[in-house]
Every structure is written in structure tokens, then in C-alpha cells.
Amino acid sequence: MSATKETTTQEPETPKVSIVVEFSGGLEMLFSDQRRHSLSIPATDKEGKAVTISYLIDYLCNRTMKDARKELFVLDDHVRPGILVLINDADWELEGEEAYELQNGDNILFVSTLHGG
């Protein structure tokens, strides 16, 4: 995983990483009722560091989410408690949570557990 990081950070131009972001458990309603979003996002942030889940969350709030109710997705700059994040089907707690560095082809799933059952 760390090998690809170095190649992406060395690029002089702004390369992109292609990822798939999915929303379920009710979160899709915050993202234009669309479950699956294919995104191409900058591979590095302003400081030239490889982009992380933390960057993605900002990106989603500012670029992808049309709904004004940001607090249903993010609270105090973190994913709202009760929303599960799966990175390539693995609990993000196993992958370093917000510090995980995005790789080309990653699938990031946000699932809300907050809605009725």
C-alpha cells in the first residue's frame, strides 16, 4: 500500500486518484439520492501529501454533497458517530481511519446505522 503512495506524491503535475464512493443506510439521500459516485480526486493535497480519507470527507462535503444538512454526515470535522466507513469492504478502524491514504481503484463505503430498523 505504501509503495504507490510514493509514486503519487512524486508526480510534478496534479495527478488524480480514481475511487468509487458509495453511500447507504439512508446517507444516499444527502448525495442526490445516488448510491454510487465515481470520483477522480487530486492525488495530493495543498502541501503535496497523499490524500487521505480525511481529505475525501472534506471533498465530499464541499464538492459532492448538494444537501445543506452537512451535520448529518460530519460533526465537529469528523464523520458523524453512527456512520460506518468501509475501505475496500474492511472496517476503516483496521485501515487507519481518517489517516488512510487513498489508492487508485479504492472503494469507500459510508453506511449509516442511524436510521430505523
Binding site: 447507504s24 439512508g26 468501509l86 469492504d89 463505503l109 449509516s112 436510521h115 430498523g117
Partner: peptide, 12 residues
């Protein structure tokens, strides 16, 4: 999720 069960999500 892992058993790919078919469920519905909505808020009253």
C-alpha cells in the same frame, strides 16, 4: 452488508 441482505432504509 457482508451477507448482502435486502433491506430498506428510511426515516419516518
Amino acid at each position: 452488508h457482508h451477507k448482502k441482505l435486502d433491506y430498506f432504509t428510511t426515516e419516518c
